[in-house]
């Protein structure tokens, strides 16, 4: 009987959420938020990962729980917005990406447009939309970038290339709006944006030799 009980507990543990199998158990308050999300049918991997991040950083359990609660609400809003568009998609990734977009104050209309993309690029598209808008890119430009890449041939590679290009341009100091717009049309090119090529023309307009139009020296 004891062996049967042990086997039953083993199977129960295997079927339980990762929080129950963790090497370092999560605080009860934190685990409760995750369980609440799981029981509501929300994807919980992102919550579990964030909980462990907080644990690793030594964040008080109450603060972790409070943040997880906010994330749980965001996930719920994302699920509502996504509706049936999650069929055939990595649901965890899509819901997390849309939740991130909502936190970045992306409009629901823009998110709905992402949800009309081919199935394979909806999740990365949502995540990219969140990241680029939060980085300062214009929502319309980012939508154009993602939409153009996501509906073309080889959408996965095209989207990755375009997003990486935009990030690189922004890192190099180019205005986010211009970077996103340029990356949308030149995602595969290795050269810099066109405004850096005609240096003499830019000088006549009062721009510095190596400055983008948004970086005039005062």
């Amino acid at each position: 009987m004891t062996n049967v009980l042990k086997i039953a507990l083993l199977f129960a543990a295997l079927g339980a959420p990762s929080v129950a199998r963790a090497e370092t158990p999560l605080d009860a308050e934190v685990a409760a938020v995750i369980e609440l999300a799981r029981s509501a049918g929300l994807p919980v991997l992102s919550l579990d990962a964030k909980a462990r991040e907080g644990l690793a950083k030594g964040v008080p359990a109450a603060r972790v729980a409070a943040h997880l609660e906010a994330l749980r609400v965001d996930l719920g809003r994302a699920v509502t917005l996504i509706g049936s568009a999650a069929e055939g998609v990595d649901r965890e990734a899509l819901v997390s990406g849309v939740a991130a977009a909502l936190r970045a104050r992306v409009s629901p209309g823009a998110i709905r447009q992402i949800l009309t993309l081919p199935v394979g690029v909806r999740a990365p598209g949502a995540r990219s939309l969140a990241d680029l808008v939060a980085a300062g890119c214009n929502e319309a430009d980012v939508l154009h970038l993602i939409d153009r890449a996501g509906r073309g041939p080889n959408p996965d590679a095209a989207l990755h290339s375009a997003v990486t290009r935009a990030v690189t341009l922004i890192t190099q100091g180019h205005p986010p709006d211009l970077a996103a717009a340029h990356a949308a049309d030149h995602g595969d090119e290795a050269e810099g944006p066109p405004w850096g090529k005609d240096k003499d023309k830019d000088k006549d307009k009062g721009h510095g030799k190596d400055d983008a139009p948004g970086q005039q020296k005062k």
Binding site: R103, A104, D131, V133, A134, A135, G136, P176
Partner: peptide, 14 residues
């Protein structure tokens, strides 16, 4: 780089 309208992400220069 500022992030007035988008507080989530920020850019840095090395």
């Amino acid at each position: 780089m500022t992030d007035d309208g988008n507080p989530g992400l920020r850019m840095h220069s090395a």
